[in-house]
Amino acid sequence: MNKPLPALHIVNKSPFAASSLEQCLQRLAVGDSLLLIEDAVYAAITEEIWDGLRTQPNKPARILALSPDLCQRGLADKSLAEGIEQVDYAGFVELVTTHNPIHSW
């Protein structure tokens, strides 16, 4: 049974408090995507976090931030780092249907 889908990586911790985002980014396969939820959405508004990533061969196909979690933290009006998309829970569910495995860090 071959796995035809890319993985979805979910990070839930602030990059300023924990290493899980960095550790996740070190383990991406080509085509995988990254979803930032809960305190990890602080990474979405911080351009500097992503500087080193742009040149990596295994950068995520898509980087998304969960919009209700941005709102909850008063970040709804902030501009997101380049290339990061917003997604709501319906979009989160859709991402889960189009990826596998779902890897929470």
């Binding site: 049974m1 796995k3 993985a7 383990r27 991406l28 396969a29 295994n58 596998n100 495995p101 779902i102 890897h103 929470s104």
Partner: peptide, 10 residues
Amino acid sequence: IELMGQMHMV
């Protein structure tokens, strides 16, 4: 990374 890509569940 290659092994992770072959998993059904993580």
